[in-house]
């Protein structure tokens, strides 16, 4: 049906509301990118900017790996089994989304700081969290874990247990069934969860700034430049960050879409 032929007031109102929201989301981003596009080159060639961006991307990648390694098995257990305390743990998983992120940073500092039991123990192993990459990764993992866990949980729930029964009836072990059947079928959801978690980690400011101000990640560096040099100086860095985020998201979506096609590897 042609859009122009639609006469339903509900559809027209929905479209107008949707367009208003889309403009609200797109305009600031478009203005940030188009306005200072002339300064992009200087931002790209500034080693401090690139170092901060690299730190953000690299730490977010490590945080995503860490959450995937621990969160995917947890999501599977949550999707498949009932046990005592499940609903309690279930509600805890969403907590990092709900609490203010600087509060999350303070909470992490109290657990991982040098004066704490765990922080002291890790320090004795040469791993310190305050003002280190470990701290950035910990803060990023904390705030972005729910996105990956929830996405993976939903993906696993979408795989019929009968599919696993069949694999086991054909002689596959529990691990073999997970590796050869469950994981490939839940792959799209897990990869989407990784993308969401990575994106959330890259943009994290509140928790990171409390636990690990140094080495500077992109959001902290951008905040620094904004406070010390003003809006004009921060705009090219802002534009660069947005462009890179868009490129990464598009590339990742391409990978997910290819991986989810039947027969895709």
């Amino acid at each position: 049906m042609s859009w122009l032929r639609i006469r339903s007031p509900f559809i027209i109102a929905s479209t107008l509301f949707g367009l208003a929201l889309a403009l609200f989301l797109i305009l600031p981003i478009a203005a940030s990118v188009i306005g200072p596009s002339a300064g992009l080159y200087s931002a790209i060639t500034d080693p401090r900017t690139m170092s901060a961006i690299w730190m953000s991307f690299y730490s977010a990648f490590l945080a995503t790996l860490l959450i995937a390694a621990t969160g995917v098995p947890l999501a599977y257990i949550f999707a498949r089994y009932q046990f005592h305390g499940k609903s309690f743990i279930d509600s805890l998983i969403d907590l990092p989304i709900l609490i203010p992120h600087n509060a999350a940073g303070i909470a992490l500092l109290s657990v991982l700081g040098p004066g704490s039991l765990l922080g002291g123990f890790m320090g004795s192993l040469g791993i310190t969290f305050v003002d280190s990459v470990y701290g950035i990764v910990a803060a990023m993992a904390f705030v972005s874990a729910p996105f990956l866990i929830r996405s993976a949980q939903e993906a696993f729930s979408g795989v019929s247990p009968t599919m696993e029964y069949v694999a086991k009836s054909l002689g596959a072990s529990d691990l073999g069934t997970f590796r050869r059947v469950t994981l490939p079928l839940a792959r799209k959801g897990i990869l989407t969860g990784c993308l969401l978690a990575w994106g959330r980690a890259v943009s994290e400011f509140g928790a990171v700034v409390i636990l690990a101000y140094y080495p500077k990640t992109a959001p902290i560096y951008l905040f620094d430049v904004f406070v010390s040099e003003g809006l004009r100086a921060s705009l090219p860095i802002n534009a660069l960050l947005i462009c890179l985020a868009v490129i990464v998201i598009l590339a990742f979506r391409g990978v997910v879409a290819r991986g989810s096609r039947p027969g895709g590897r």
Binding site: T162, Y165, S169, V181, P184, P262
Partner: peptide, 18 residues
């Protein structure tokens, strides 16, 4: 299940779509 020597065909076949 895999060691019972049974062949199991669930309802609708449930083939591995990937």
């Amino acid at each position: 299940p895999g060691q019972r020597g049974f062949g199991y065909v669930p309802q609708s076949g449930v083939l591995f779509p990937h």
